[in-house]
Computed example of a mutant assay.
Amino acid sequence: MTPSMKLLTGLLIQVIARALSEVLPPQNIHVDKWLVTWTPATEDDVRYTVQYNSFDEEKLIDVPGCVNIALNSCNIASAQAEDEQGCLRLHVRAERRGVKSTAVEACSRHGDDCSPEVNLIARPGFLTVMLRSNHSLAKEHGGHAVHRVYYGKEGEPLEDYEDDEASVSLHGLEEGVRYCMKVQYMVFGNPDRTAQLH
């Protein structure tokens, strides 16, 4: 075997090994009340685990009954009961043949006490993020509870943001470009509870 054939064979083995070791993370993860759903993988033998943490903790904990399942949805009522406020950050990770994907955070389609209710109005060059000002945190904390709207072009970090008690209008956006949003409650200047939109 020539040196170039050895090199090509070595590279081919590395590419195959990398492809076998990678697991695509779950996509389109949404939570609605007690149900978390996601788009299933196209590969065979993929299992999923739903995990949670409080908004002030980093460690992820498996949701009982949602560990290593083949389904693309799971009821997380048991985990919600664990948190005093009932507000949790939910994540889903995929696993295939012992290899795990990164855990992807779920986002809420509908607002509730845990995440802001968000509607979008788009026009050429600007976007209005419609938010409710009479949510439960506003009733409890008054003007100390606001929305923080992060935004950016799809695929880029969401670093720019605007704070407001109600709706936010973003001007000067590029036409024909897809933008992503993350809306977060802020209470006394601290982040709390999140909804994401793409």
Rank of each mutant, 00 (worst) to 15 (best):
M1Y: 15
M1I: 14
S4M: 15
K6I: 14
G10K: 07
L11K: 05
L12K: 06
I13F: 15
V15N: 06
L20T: 09
L20M: 15
L24A: 15
P26N: 10
P26D: 06
I29E: 02
H30Q: 12
H30T: 13
V31L: 08
D32W: 10
K33D: 03
L35C: 10
T37D: 06
W38H: 00
P40V: 07
E43M: 07
E43T: 06
V46H: 02
V46Y: 02
Y48Q: 02
Y48L: 04
Y48I: 03
Y48F: 07
V50Q: 00
N53F: 01
N53G: 04
S54A: 06
S54Q: 04
F55S: 01
E58R: 12
K59T: 08
P64N: 08
N68T: 06
N68S: 11
I69F: 05
I69A: 05
L71D: 11
N72C: 04
C74L: 03
N75Y: 07
S78M: 09
A79S: 05
Q80F: 05
Q80A: 06
E82D: 10
G86W: 06
L88K: 02
L90R: 00
V92W: 00
V92S: 00
R96Y: 06
R97L: 10
G98H: 07
S101C: 07
A103W: 03
A103D: 04
A103M: 07
V104W: 03
E105V: 12
E105L: 09
E105S: 09
R109W: 03
R109N: 05
G111S: 02
G111A: 01
D112E: 04
D112H: 01
D113H: 09
E117R: 07
N119A: 13
I121P: 01
I121C: 08
A122W: 10
A122Q: 12
A122K: 13
G125F: 08
L127S: 02
V129G: 00
V129P: 00
M130D: 15
L131R: 04
R132Q: 13
R132K: 14
N134L: 13
A138N: 07
K139R: 15
H141R: 11
G143H: 15
G143E: 15
A145N: 08
V146Y: 04
H147D: 06
H147R: 08
Y151Q: 07
G152A: 12
K153H: 10
E154N: 14
E156P: 05
L158I: 11
D160N: 15
E162S: 13
D163S: 13
E165I: 15
A166I: 10
L170E: 01
L170P: 00
G172L: 08
G172N: 11
G172D: 09
G172M: 06
L173G: 01
L173N: 03
E174F: 12
E174P: 04
G176A: 12
R178L: 11
R178Q: 11
R178M: 10
Y179I: 01
M181P: 00
Q184K: 09
Q184A: 04
Q184T: 08
Y185I: 01
Y185D: 01
M186H: 05
F188T: 05
P191G: 11
Q196M: 13
